[in-house]
Simulated assay, not measured.
Amino acid sequence: MTRDRLPSLTGLRFWAAFAVVMYHLSRQAGTVPWLSETVWYGRSGVTFFFVLSGFVLAWTYDGAAVPAKVFLWRRFARIWPLLVVSTVLSVGVWVAVGKDVSVRAVAVSLALVHAWSPDPVIFTGGNPAGWSLSDEAWFYLIFPLLLAVLAGRSRRVWAMTAVAVSLGAAAVWLASPLMGSATVRIWALDYFPPTRTLQFVLGVVAGLAVKRGWRPPVSLPVAVALVVGWHLALIPWSAAVPDSLWYSPYSASQLLSAPIFAALVCAAAHADIRGRNTGLGSTWMIRLGHWSFAWYLVHEIVIRVALHLGGGRPDPGAETYSFWVLVLVVSLALSAALYHLVEHPVERLLRRLGPGRTTATRTERAVALR
């Protein structure tokens, strides 16, 4: 095991995507007892991805002296091809089911700036799951500056930064009643790139700290227990407060969970550094982790198709279980095909054609970050 290979983070990517898939199935295609309650706020998996993004980029590029244009081209090659393909699939399904499609929204989506608009037609245009890539594009744009400011600082500065961004996220959530309409509030809390930047910065300082030898205070099993415990605690909260209210767990589950996810990422990375077998770095977990980006982008499209062909939401019971299994199998198979036929080969081609003309670092290949 070398210090620049973190296979457990690839395995964790699958579980984060799984949480998002379960979230959409539960809310769009009928509930499964116990499981749906646990994943009712599985959209927090996106928060995990934002923290992970900052962690891995800091780990990979700290001290690498990679020019900003090379870095940005690598990131473009990583996310844009699959965004285009998934958007084409999504728009095709919208048209097939008779829903109007905003050409402007699709264009803004492909330009990766749609999350900056408070208009739901815009920030969910094209492929609704693609909103998070608009935030990622912003993170990539500011990352060279963040790295220049934070790399080489003391652990005290990194700790203070981590505390500041965590408290900042809580402050944004507490201030949300002042944000006009419910639509604007949801956009500002859940989609707006500067709000989500707090999670990315937390990941950056965590990556810098662990790379420089900092040992996380909790082990991987404890970190996993914290994540599971957090989502279980949301169940009674959800029962008491409707999602439409600002103090519901809907936005809180995404804004307040970043420190817990940072602990999970740090613990998994540290276990890899120490050469421990986490169960997350097996051949199949790595494979599933590689497919997770495509799975995240296409699973909701498959749900839409299945709902349309089935004439709406399945009946409770066996029909719901069958629907879930069908969607999981089909969407994961489609994701595997997209990874091997589009995502991976096109990324390699674009890297060869772009500035730097270098292959991915070992960490980038191992983690295959969104």
Rank of each mutant, 00 (worst) to 15 (best):
W214L: 13
A19V: 06
S181E: 14
V51A: 07
S253K: 10
S26Y: 00
S238K: 13
P316I: 02
A171R: 08
L57H: 00
A129S: 15
A137M: 12
G289P: 05
H290T: 14
A269D: 03
A252Y: 06
V163M: 12
D100M: 05
A162D: 02
G63C: 10
F76N: 05
V330G: 07
A17K: 03
S53R: 00
S53T: 07
M179W: 14
L369F: 01
A262P: 09
F261R: 08
V149Y: 00
S253L: 11
A96P: 01
R75T: 01
A225M: 13
R304W: 11
I301F: 07
A159K: 14
S244M: 00
D100H: 12
A151G: 05
V20P: 01
R357A: 15
S282C: 08
M1P: 14
V224W: 04
R196T: 04
S282I: 08
Y61K: 08
I301R: 10
A159S: 13
W80A: 10
M285D: 06
A233G: 13
W187L: 10
A137I: 05
F48H: 05
V84R: 09
F123T: 07
Q28Y: 13
R153Y: 02
S322K: 14
V20T: 04
R276W: 05
L141F: 12
A164C: 06
R287P: 05
W173M: 09
L150F: 07
S36M: 01
S282G: 15
A29G: 09
V149H: 03
R313G: 03
P249C: 11
M179C: 08
L82M: 13
K211Y: 00
W214D: 11
S253G: 14
M160Y: 13
F55G: 03
H299N: 11
G180A: 13
L82D: 02
L198C: 06
I303P: 04
A151P: 04
G180P: 09
S253M: 11
R351P: 01
S166K: 09
R75A: 07
L338N: 07
V184N: 10
E136L: 14
P67I: 00
W73V: 09
W237F: 07
G30K: 01
T278M: 03
V32R: 01
R352G: 10
V88S: 04
F76A: 12
L328S: 06
L112F: 03
L341W: 11
R13C: 01
A68Q: 12
P216T: 08
K69G: 11
G281H: 03
R357Y: 03
L57N: 00
S86Q: 09
A111F: 08
P33C: 01
R155T: 11
W214H: 13
A268P: 06
V298A: 10
F49N: 08
I286K: 15
D272Y: 05
G289A: 09
F55L: 01
A263E: 03
N277S: 15
L12Q: 00
